[in-house]
Design a protein around this nucleic acid. Structure first.
Length: 219
DNA sequence: AAGTGGCTCAACCGCAGCAAG
DNA sequence: ACTTGCTGCGGTTGAGCCACT
């Protein structure tokens, strides 16, 4: 059993004080983001590295956009969630200035309810009234389904919902005709340079679908 | 004004992936 | 090949706020 990283006695927990924030900001301004493990000690903070990282990424980073989500951001989150499932960091990577935590919170507190209200299952983005289409009974499908993770299942459903988007006009009230700005190169690189994502069904679907006009979002 | 129930969001926890030894 | 340590991610929690009764 690995020793937890945050069980060190004397480490602060809970909300951050202004002084702590300032120490972290000052340290990162001088030294940049680096080894989170060593940052607390170097910055004179009684926090674990994990906590520092989270605080910086979710709150202190200068490029964070705070405040309400715009309509196009909402639409994009819904669309991306349909494609990627609960891959909040990937979704947030497509929303400049937004963090995964923020997107996740916004989804759970607003968008889930919104979709439910619209009669859409937030887990698979299907209209609740629509009967699930019959699954092909092929051996490969059976095999792969056995080992599927929740994300993969969501992703399958997402694919279906995308098809529905294209084939059944009016199946959703969401305006998916997004005119969002092209993501910054950093975000694109972020996706491209994440090898761990290459194995996932969701990602491969994304990559495949980049060829289709629907996914200009991902270019 | 007080009670309370729901909501929001910052922060924590545990796990997985990866790299280094 | 295996272990260890670090980072990053997603799920969950809980304090504080707000609206309603």
């Amino acid at each position: 059993m690995r020793k937890p990283c945050c069980d060190k006695e004397g480490n602060n927990k809970g909300s951050w004080s202004k002084q702590e924030d300032q120490k972290l900001i000052d340290y990162i301004a001088t030294h940049g983001e680096g080894c989170w493990r060593s940052i607390p000690k170097a910055a004179g903070l009684h926090r674990c590295g994990k906590s520092c990282r989270l605080r910086w990424i979710n709150y202190l980073r200068p490029d964070i956009k705070r405040g309400n989500f715009a309509q196009d951001e909402e639409d994009l989150i819904i669309k991306l969630h349909a494609l990627l499932g609960n891959r909040w960091s990937l979704i947030a990577g497509r929303l400049p200035g937004r963090t995964d935590n923020e997107v996740k919170n916004y989804w759970n507190s607003h968008l889930r309810k919104k979709l439910i209200k619209m009669g859409i299952d937030p887990n698979n983005h299907r209209l609740n009234q629509i009967l699930p289409r019959p699954q092909p009974v092929d051996e490969d499908t059976c095999k792969s389904n056995k080992s599927k993770t929740d994300n993969d299942r969501v992703s399958d459903a997402a694919t279906s919902s995308l098809e529905e988007d294209e084939t059944s006009a009016g199946s959703s009230h969401i305006n998916l005709d997004l005119t969002i700005a092209v993501p910054s190169p950093a975000h694109t690189a972020n996706l491209e340079t994440r090898p761990e994502n290459c194995n996932t069904a969701a990602t491969s679907e994304v990559l495949q679908s980049e060829k289709s006009p629907t996914l200009l979002l991902f270019l």
